[in-house]
Design a binder for these strands. Structure first.
Lengths: 134, 134
DNA sequence: TATTGTTATACTCTATAACTATA
DNA sequence: TATAGTTATAGAGTATAACAATA
């Protein structure tokens, strides 16, 4: 077996992980992208759509559709920014916070299952090494 | 800084790597996907389109377009399978083998640059851990 | 003039389904 | 009947450009 390309390894590791995280989030009616957006919107300081988009590195026009979807599921709500009426502040609803918390536990479990092939020390190390590269 | 999700780390590590591999392959007129296909087709045993598609985990209809592109660039050639005229055997041209070899060196260098943030031992370990997960 | 959210649009990547020629 | 290649088509996921409201 030849040494596989790093890009291949990263991509397929992510694909295999997604096979676990997808079903893990399914009971909450969201996918991984929606969970990521919800997570960013769940931080203590309320964010505008644009601010949230920047944190995720996605376009603000893409964020519109993401917030639309989360709002339809009653996981987040838009409200006008008090001092700047161009902005929408977006915050999780009560239900959204609940889904965020339970989703986070489900994601933790999925990651753990994915890393189960490695000794705990190596799993921690992998995460640390990736963190240093990103 | 909260601990980032494993999926985020894998995805963004791959994005950062792609920022290096993309330009590395550009002088050869191919992108990462084309390099991957060319690599598979460059193995000693000649492969049919379907066999190549299976090795890469992509659909055979997707492979048609990939081979079309590589053929237009005169990097591979289709020829009929001697014993089964339904099959196209696809092999790199002389030029294709040259691009493959030089592209591989460019990819090696790009990966090395990407991993430069880590001590050599850790870089090797990262690759090994990913390999065990995929 | 610049920024925010929005909409319309287009582009990339990929898969599915149906066709054809062969087996 | 089944398989290999092909084509047409559709669906994600995403970005770009233009617009209205507001700053």
């Amino acid at each position: 077996m030849p040494t596989r390309r790093l890009g291949y390894l990263l991509k397929h590791a992510n694909l295999r992980l997604a096979e676990l995280t997808g079903p893990a989030l399914e009971p909450y009616g969201i996918d991984g992208r929606e969970f990521a957006v919800l997570s960013v919107l769940g931080t203590p300081e309320p964010l505008s759509q644009q601010e949230a988009a920047q944190r995720l590195g996605i376009d603000r026009s893409t964020m519109v559709a993401m917030v639309d979807a989360l709002e339809r599921k009653e996981l987040v709500g838009r409200r006008p920014h008090p001092g700047d009426r161009r902005k929408n502040m977006v915050e999780p609803t009560e239900h959204g916070r609940d889904v965020l918390e339970k989703g986070a536990r489900a994601m933790d479990a999925a990651e753990e299952a994915f890393l189960a092939a490695l000794p705990a020390d190596d799993a921690r190390l992998l995460r640390e090494l990736l963190d240093r590269l990103v």
